[in-house]
Structures are given as structure tokens and as C-alpha cells.
Design a binder for these strands. Structure first.
Ligand SMILES: Nc1nc2c(ncn2[C@H]2C[C@H](O)[C@@H](COP(=O)(O)OP(=O)(O)OP(=O)(O)O)O2)c(=O)[nH]1
Ligand SMILES: [Mn+2]
Ligand SMILES: [Mn+2]
Length: 534
DNA sequence: TGGACGTGCCAC
DNA sequence: AAACGTGGCACGTCCA
């Protein structure tokens, strides 16, 4: 690990060397945990995690050239020291230690000036820098997994998949690879001769996407079997099979890796495994989610911002109607669901509300009538009418959309209310399709990015609160899922901590509408009961 | 054999 | 599939 201490003493440490020796190790602890000794480096999250594995909690991170580069240009693919240095100075960094450290030093000076110039220093110092060791800790702590539950689920789905395969081959009259869209299309449209109109994919092949197959389900019983097969196969190959091998056999816990520089908007991403896309919707998905469990004597508590990006766009656009709705405590997702599905608000199911989310955010971020139709199932006329009325009712939001496009075109970038930026070169293209696409990106980023800023700030505040008041044996933050934080808390503290953490999250930053947080608590990540405000 | 690409689908 | 956006990941196919 290459680190510059106190802007002077330049050190590169081989981990093996440092931790092989008892004395060096205790010296290292003193050095790294001294917040008065300022550290400069490239990618401190990785370093912080290595140190945590040796019982050291790093403090005094002054500057991280990787995070600085990310704030200055969030759409870079790769934030390698070499790449960043080359972009900055048009030269390569040699492999030797001295070169790496002087590269970091030079980058720090140069990037610091640019951050200051672009008003990004506060985001770096108050948000990204303090967040990085927190993410390292969350990765290090991991989440407890019930392997038995996954095992049982595995047997069940395996059996079902086998049976489905048999039935599908029988209908098809031959065996083929159901997972191959090409072979599947051949069976459906050539062998079985299905006549239902199906869209072409981008490259011109007949689409076998679920939305298309659903339209054929009346025409042949094989369709429903294929859809079920897809659902089970997805669960099996993406979740059930890979997860057990990723569990730490000593602790039974599963550790993700967060990427703090992986999105153009400021969101985090999660990989190996991705714990931000654990199934939640279907019955089967919920069964898998049930495998994420609290330690003995602990509870999982989930804190999820209510309608987060709608509240943010209400604030950014200063939309009177939307602001009023939130001040009255309305649920706009539920309202949309009631309207689209033509039921009263109290008859809106979870599934209907999730579909309404797609519509509300879809329209906000530029969904057309066709897209709305597909997502909602309503007629062309009703789709068109809904979008028109949405823009009419929330005229402030409509104005925001227009103004943001203009501003993006004029400045070449858009930004969140805290100044995080996304460059949008594509908006100056000559290709209409690329312009439209860039426009939609422009509308989305300030909202999604502000949401990311807010939850990052909340994470820092909540983490500080928890560490100042409790030990790791009492409460720990496990996961972030974009607008949700998942904690593992000693059962007897759950009630009180729920209130404290909710308060911190709801008051993280005052905007023109209330921010509210839904709190749920349970033994696993699936069966959770709501905790009320008091 | 392995990487790039296309298709598809999970979450927010 | 597309005039919603942001991701990660698995599989099949094609090609070097
Ligand atoms: N563009 C887009 N953004 C989405 C979509 N689904 C979720 N998001 C974004 C906007 C949401 O505010 C944010 C958090 O997702 P949630 O599932 O928690 O929804 P939300 O907070 O809006 O409603 P909630 O009250 O928590 O059920 O993620 C989507 O389908 N499209
Ligand atoms: Mn939410
Ligand atoms: Mn959420």
C-alpha cells in the first residue's frame, strides 16, 4: 500500500512485511489510528479494509486521488492510478515505489486545485472521504447467511427446473437449449409456428424477452412453462449457486465489495456478490431473501427513505403541487397505482405499487407513451392521457425537465444540489437518438445523484452516532441499497436505535418537503414488521 | 480457451 | 423493444 504521511514522509509498505512482525504491527496501529497523522493515497477503501482485517481502524485520511478523480469526472471507466495520472499529465507512472508515490503527490496538488475550482471539496471532505472507511467496515463485517435455507431452496428449484425442462421438450417435440434465445426463438416461431407478433431485438432477431413471451401465452401452453423456467433458472444461476461459495466458512457471513467510483450519478454499486439486487418481488425471490438473517440475539433493521427521488424532484423543481402532496403526507406511488389499476387506494397491493413506481419514475425521466403502455398494460390513449395529466399537474417538474436539458446543453454538465457533477458530452451530438438519450440522463442525474448524496451523508452521520454511543457488539451497519440502510442490532436495543437512526436519516439535510423513513425490523431480510414513528 | 458482444433479468 | 434512469451478472454465441 502506497501512502503519504503528513505530506512529507513518503511510505510504501508491503502488507506481509508490516504484519509479519509483532512490533511493526503495533507501530502500524499507532501510526494509522492517529488522526493527527494525515494520510494521502489512492483508493483508501481497499487499504482501510486490509487494515481492519489486522485490527486497525484507519483515521486521518486527508486526500484520496481516486475519489478526487471520480468527483471531477464520474463517467471514467477506470480509476487506476496510472490512468488518472495519464489523463492529468499525459505521462505514465513507472512501477517502482518512488514513482507511484510521487505520482500520488503530484496528482493531489493538481486535483485539489480543480476540486476547489469546481466547488467539489466539501463533497470530497465531508462525504466521500469519511465514507470510504465506513464502506470498508461494512464490507468487512458482512452479513449472516442461512446456508441451510439456500440448500433447501436449491433442491426445490432444481427439481422444478428438471420437470419444466421435460414438459418444455415434450411440447417442442425435441430437446434444445432453453437458455439460448436463438434456439428458443427457432422452436417457438419455426418449429411450433407461433404467429403472435413479436418485436425484434436491437440486432434484428426475434425477441424472446419476458414481456414479449407474455403476449403469446394464450397461443401456446409452452410459454408459461418457459417463463417459469426463466424465473427459476435466474434464481438458481445468479443467486442460489454462486452465493454459498462466497460465504466465509469460518464466520458464515457474506461480504460484498462496494464500488465508490462505479456510477455516473454518485450512487454506489455492489459486486462479488451484488447485494443491491437481492430478489424482493416474487414469492421465490422473497424465499431467497429470507436467507439473509440476523445473528443470534440480534435483529435486522431496515431504514428506507419513502418515495425518495419524488421528494427530491419536488424540492429541486419547487413544484407546488408535489410539495403540497408531500407536506400532506401523501403517497404518490399509491395514488398512481390506484389510478392505473382503477382501485381505491386501500386496495393497492405491493405489486401494484411497485409497478406504479416504474410509471412515476419512468414518466419523470422521459418515458414515452409506448414505454408507458408496456409498463402499465393500459391502452395507448390512457398512456398518453396519464403522461399529459402528470405534466399538467406537476408543471413545475415539467419545467425542471425542460430547464435541465437547456442547462445541460449550455454547460455540458449537470449537477446535484450539493454540486456533484456529471459531464454530458453526448448532448452535443448530431445524432438525434443520442441527444434524446443524453437529455434523459441529464434529467435523471441531479435527482438520483442528490439521493445518493443524501444517503451518503446519512451514512456518515449514522455511523458516527453508532460508534460514539455503542460497541460493535451492539449495533452495526451492514448494507446500503441506494436509499436503504440495513443494520444488525442487539435485539434489546432495536426499539431505541430505530428511533435514533430514523431521526438522523430524516433530518440529514432539510429540503422543502419532509424526508420520511420507513423502518422495518425482523430476524431476516424478508419477514419484517413495520416500526411506527414513536 | 478466453474475451467481446448480445440478450435477458434481478434490484433501486 | 422502446423516448424512464442507475447498476451487476449469467448465459450463449462468435471469433481469434
Ligand atoms: N428511474 C428509476 N428509478 C427508480 C426505479 N425504481 C427505483 N428507483 C429509484 C427512485 C427511488 O426513489 C429510489 C429508491 O427506490 P425504492 O424502491 O425505495 O422506491 P421509493 O423510495 O421511491 O418508494 P418507497 O416509498 O421506498 O417504496 O430508487 C425505477 O424503476 N426507475
Ligand atoms: Mn425508498
Ligand atoms: Mn429502497
Amino acid at each position: 500500500m502506497d501512502i503519504i504521511f503528513n505530506d512529507q514522509k513518503v511510505v510504501s509498505i508491503s502488507t506481509e512485511k508490516m504484519f509479519g512482525d509483532k512490533e511493526l504491527r503495533s507501530n502500524a496501529k499507532v501510526l494509522f489510528e492517529n488522526s493527527g497523522i494525515l494520510k494521502i493515497g489512492h483508493g483508501f477503501k481497499r487499504i482501510a479494509k486490509i487494515l481492519l482485517e489486522r485490527g486497525i481502524h484507519i483515521k486521518g485520511i486527508e486526500f484520496d486521488t481516486e475519489l478526487a478523480a471520480y468527483l471531477l469526472n464520474s463517467d471514467l471507466q477506470d480509476f487506476d492510478l496510472n490512468k488518472i495520472y495519464f489523463i492529468e499529465f499525459g505521462d505514465n507512472v513507472s512501477f517502482d515505489v518512488k514513482s507511484r508515490l510521487s505520482a500520488i503527490s503530484a496528482l493531489k496538488k493538481s486535483l485539489w486545485e480543480k476540486l476547489k475550482l469546481n466547488g467539489l471539496l466539501k463533497l470530497l471532505e465531508d462525504v466521500e472521504l469519511p465514507l470510504s472507511p465506513i464502506l470498508a467496515e461494512m464490507e468487512f463485517v458482512g452479513i449472516n447467511v442461512n446456508q441451510k435455507n439456500i440448500e433447501i431452496l436449491s433442491k426445490k428449484t432444481e427439481e422444478q427446473i428438471k420437470n419444466l425442462e421435460k414438459d418444455i421438450y415434450k411440447f417442442a417435440g425435441e430437446e434444445f437449449n432453453i437458455s439460448s434465445p436463438q434456439q428458443l426463438a427457432h422452436i417457438l416461431f419455426t418449429v411450433l409456428g407461433l404467429k403472435g407478433k413479436v418485436r425484434k431485438t436491437g440486432k434484428g432477431a426475434l425477441s424472446t424477452a419476458a414481456a414479449e413471451l407474455e403476449k403469446l401465452s394464450e397461443e401456446h401452453p409452452i410459454i408459461d412453462l418457459i417463463l417459469k423456467y426463466r424465473e427459476l433458472q435466474k434464481l438458481k444461476t445468479t443467486y442460489i449457486e454462486p452465493f454459498p461459495s462466497l460465504i466465509d466458512s469460518k464466520t458464515g457471513r457474506l461480504h460484498t465489495t462496494y464500488n465508490q467510483t462505479g456510477t455516473t450519478t454518485g450512487r454506489l454499486s455492489s459486486q462479488n456478490p451484488n447485494l443491491q439486487n437481492i430478489p424482493a418481488r416474487t414469492e421465490l425471490g422473497q424465499e431467497f431473501r429470507r436467507s439473509f438473517v440476523a445473528d443470534k440475539g440480534f435483529q435486522l433493521i431496515s431504514f428506507d427513505y419513502s418515495q425518495l427521488e419524488l421528494r427530491i424532484v419536488a424540492h429541486i423543481s419547487n413544484d407546488e403541487k408535489m410539495m403540497e402532496a408531500f407536506k400532506r403526507g401523501e403517497d404518490i406511488h399509491t395514488r398512481t397505482a390506484a389510478e392505473i389499476f382503477e382501485v381505491s387506494a386501500d386496495k393497492v397491493t405491493k405489486s401494484m405499487r411497485r409497478d406504479a413506481k416504474t410509471l412515476n419514475f419512468g414518466v419523470l425521466y422521459g418515458m414515452g407513451q409506448m414505454g408507458f403502455q408496456r409498463a402499465s398494460g393500459v391502452t395507448r390513449e390512457r398512456a398518453k392521457e396519464f403522461i399529459r395529466k402528470y405534466m399538467e399537474e406537476f408543471s413545475g417538474v415539467a419545467a425542471y425537465m425542460e430547464q435541465t436539458k437547456q442547462s445541460a446543453y449550455q454547460k455540458g454538465y449537470v449537477s446535484t444540489i450539493f454540486g456533484r457533477r456529471r459531464k454530458l458530452e453526448g448532448i452535443k451530438s448530431n445524432i438525434p437518438e443520442l441527444i434524446r438519450q443524453a437529455e434523459r440522463m441529464a434529467i435523471n442525474m441531479p435527482v438520483q445523484g442528490t439521493a445518493a448524496d443524501l444517503i451518503k451523508m446519512a451514512m456518515v452521520k449514522v455511523h458516527n452516532f453508532v460508534h460514539e454511543n455503542l460497541s460493535h457488539e451492539e449495533a452495526r451497519m451492514l448494507l446500503q441499497v441506494h436509499d436503504e440502510l440495513l443494520f444488525e442490532v442487539r435485539a434489546d436495543l432495536a426499539q431505541k436505535l430505530s428511533k435514533d437512526i430514523r431521526d438522523i436519516m430524516e433530518n440529514v439535510f432539510k429540503i422543502s418537503v419532509p424526508l420520511t423513513v420507513d423502518v422495518k425490523c425482523g430476524d431476516n431480510w424478508s419477514d419484517m414488521r413495520s416500526l411506527s414513528v414513536n
